[in-house]
Design a protein around this nucleic acid. Structure first.
Lengths: 338, 338
DNA sequence: TTATAGAATGGCATCGATTTCATTAAAGCC
DNA sequence: GGCTTTAATGAAATCGATGCCATTCTATAA
């Protein structure tokens, strides 16, 4: 079933059918109806390959996700997809497994499918600048704050990781915690992790506490089992801490389980705080205290920004959202003697 | 950058460049290298629209997911994506929100993008048969058992929902439970739910217990909050039960939270069992007892089956996997006097 | 040396839509 | 009524790759 078949059946030319497809106003109403009826009758669906080959715009936006395991990213992804649809575009999802070729893959994808824009979700920003310059379409990073220098070759929508981590740590320290185990995702060299670690150090320094390298452990991935393993690793090494700050809720939840299995109750024996504030952790037992990122708003803003960028209505900007501490049941005030 | 540009730069014809792209053996090694170098130098990436327009095969397989919220589907989706890649195909993900137009959407997608096959994940099978007959490519349902009559217009890879639900109920009843609250997803009329309910009834009947309509509640969606709400609804109605069997782990986890907030401990005061056996529920507190579906194997089998179907090596079949009870910490043996 | 099979390569139609340009039909105007 | 303007429509080139068929080149045999 091609446009030609419809044209023949409806007694018009292919051009006219194309005009009907694209809602061109200069088609007589009567003709339009006849063509539409024919399309319906023959169950005609336009071939998107042929379409996008000829057209200037593909109406496609790519999303490159790294670590789709993480429910936090999924929460964002859902909103992004919905908003993209609403804007009349379609979403192409690509899942990046290895860290290194992330940008290369994005560049290929853009050319291959004629994407009009690309989102990066959960990746790192460690690529050299000259690679970004090869991006021929707008790129928007979501949940990853822009590096120092605020580059104008891509946009970002994120919280200030450093500041939010500092705030979370300050909160924990205000409850009397002094020895706080940090569970980061890996690698530690990833920008977002470096930022958060820096924020933690800042908070410690503000209280005059030293930053102990030993109290920084890394989890393999963004899964509950890697949080579990990281906590076990810390306990196996006999580390001394009264509190845990995990850089992701899902890691925090895994850690809580690990503590429980060793007979440690949260928050009675240990306090735990997460980062992200996913829905699920509100319903966990005990409900996780977390630094919530306003993910729905961030996702919405990211798509709006993307559309504006595509339509040339704006140039690259960096939007910073404020996080918020969501108190759950996993933190307890301890005496300073603890 | 088109194939013509490469041809000009490398001093060959477009045909030869195309041959290099498709690894045609009848190209002189020297020429092949020269063309490859040129492609690399100009950072050429073939336009997939032009490609798929001309080619017979698009190397694309669609996946229509309903309820991507459910971590169980995500676990499966990840394996499906990986296996599809390994088989040299690409995956197109489509998220169906409304129930009704699911198949219509799939049919459009197939024509539009020239898909070579389509997976249905988490949808329902309630469509009339004549719609399936319009499917021009193999369709494989994952985690949804085939309806009675074992139709040969699509394939399925699933557990026997009825039998597994029966088994789970029998397990709970063997622990002394008699009044078991069922938390189903909605709508109850969905085939998978009807099957599971039938299995539960069967188990009750085997013990001579009546099936009480009242003890069947439905959750809005596959989210932890809807499990939470369903449990609250049941408690608000003052229903009497010693045990809960939720048709999804994520619902069970939400229910546990709801009980906890009303001062009911699991498993001390109430036993809870889930369905699916997702990774996360193993790390929950308390670890969820669940009827585990062997999802990685199911996903792997589904993709293998799909590839075989595409290559014409097999015709539609229905693979049934056996589930398994994974004992956690949410079930307790009660005396029959309870 | 010349015929000839086989290996490499080039030319060109093609996939199914869009879009510009040309053409026809209808309508407005003096 | 004849002419211009505008509304509808059609013809044909085009997007970027593929693959059949034709052609050129090379190596081997007679």
């Amino acid at each position: 079933m091609t446009i030609q078949d419809i044209a023949r059946q409806a007694g018009v030319s292919a051009s006219t059918v194309s005009r009907v497809l694209n809602n061109d106003p200069k088609v007589k109403e009567e003709t339009r109806q006849r063509v539409k009826q024919t399309m319906l009758r023959l169950r005609y669906v336009p071939n998107s390959n042929a379409r996008n080959l000829k057209r200037l715009h593909s109406k496609l936006i790519g999303v490159l996700v790294k670590g789709i395991d993480n429910p936090f990213f999924l929460e964002i992804l859902k909103v992004i997809e919905q908003k993209i649809q609403e804007a009349g575009y379609s979403m192409i999802l690509e899942h990046a497994d290895s860290e290194a070729d992330e940008l290369t893959r994005a560049l290929s994808l853009i050319k291959e499918r004629r994407l009009q824009g690309i989102f990066f979700l959960g990746g790192s920003l460690e690529h050299p600048d000259h690679l970004y310059e090869q991006l021929s379409v707008p790129a928007v990073y979501v949940t990853i704050s822009a590096r120092d220098g605020n580059p104008s070759i891509y946009s970002s929508v994120a919280v200030d990781d450093r500041e939010e981590a500092r705030r979370a740590m300050a909160y924990l320290m205000s409850q009397g915690h002094r020895r706080i185990l940090l569970i980061s995702s890996s690698p530690l060299s990833r920008y977002v992790n470096r930022q958060r670690i820096a924020g933690c150090q800042e908070a410690l320094a503000a209280h005059g506490f030293p930053f102990e390298e030993e109290l920084l452990v890394q989890a393999k991935g963004y899964t509950i089992s890697s949080g579990y393993e990281a906590a076990n690793w810390a306990m196996d090494r006999g580390l001394d801490f009264s509190c845990v700050f995990a850089f992701s809720d899902i890691l925090a939840l895994g850690a809580i389980r690990a503590f429980y299995e060793r007979g440690l109750q949260v928050p009675a024996d240990l306090s735990v705080m997460g980062f992200d504030g996913i829905e699920m952790s509100r319903f966990a037992l005990p409900a996780l205290t977390s630094l919530r990122q306003p993910s729905p708003q961030m996702a919405k803003t990211a798509v709006e920004l993307m559309i504006d960028l595509i339509e040339g209505k704006t140039s690259h900007i960096h939007r910073v959202f404020a996080g918020e501490i969501r108190a759950g049941e996993t933190c307890r005030v301890v005496s300073s003697a603890d």
